[in-house]
Amino acid sequence: MADKITLEVARYSPEQDGEPRFDRYEVPLIENWMVLDALNYIKDQLDGTVTFRWSCRMGICGSCGMVVNGHERLTCETLLADYLPGPIRVEPLRHFPVMRDLVVDLSDFMEKLERVKPWIIRQPGAPEPSREFIQTPEQLAEYKQYSLCINCVLCYSACPVYGLDPHFIGPAASALSLRYNLDSRDQGAEQRLDVMAQHDGVWDCTVIGECSVVCPKHVDPSLAIQEYKISATKAWFKNLLMPGGGK
C-alpha cells in the first residue's frame, strides 16, 4: 500500500479577490484514516488556514459533509484508502453559498427546517396523558427511518431541483415533516400539508432520487416527497368534492 496520498482542497476566501482554486497537500496514508483525518492533518501540520466544519468524527453530528471526488460524503466516514492512488478532490457542498473553503452557508436550510413545523402538534384541547403516549413498536416503525436524519444536508447538495430552484423545500425538510405526520402522537398533518403543498413545496420534485442515494443514514427523502404528493392530491380532491372540507 502507498504510504502517502494527495488531496486537492477547494480554497475560497471572500476577503481575497479571485476565483476558487485548489491547493494540493500530501498526507500520510494511515490505516483506517478518513478524509476528515487527512483534513485535520493538513490543518494542524501543514496549513492552518484550511477551513472546514467537523465535530463528532463518528457520523452522527452532521457537520462534515463535503463533496469528495464529485460525490456528497460525510468526510468522517469516508476512507482515504478507497481513493487510492489519489489524488482526492475535496470541495464544499453544492447549491449553498460558499462562506470559505469547505464551509457553506446553511441559513436557507435552517429556515426550511423551521418552516415544516418539526414538533409534535396536538389539537387544541387534546388530552395530555399523565404517563407516556402508548406507541407500539409497529407505530414507531412507521416513522422511525425519517427520524434518523442528521441534517447533514448532503441531500440538498445532490438535489438537482434545489440547484435550479432554491425555493424548493427540499429533501431533508420534507422527510422531517413526514416524520411528524406519521408519528401516532402527532395531530398536525394538516398544518404541515399547508406548507408542503404550496408551489415551492413538494411539487417541484421530479423524482430523481439522488437525495436518497447520498443519504449516509439511509433515510429515504425521495419516498417522503412522493407520499406528500399523494396526500396533497387527496386533500385537493376532497376539497373539490366537499368544499368547506368534509371531515
Partner: peptide, 11 residues
C-alpha cells in the same frame, strides 16, 4: 416523550 422523542417500546 410528549415532545416526540422516539423511545424504544415494549410490544
Amino acid at each position: 416523550e410528549h415532545w416526540g422523542c422516539p423511545w424504544s417500546r415494549e410490544p
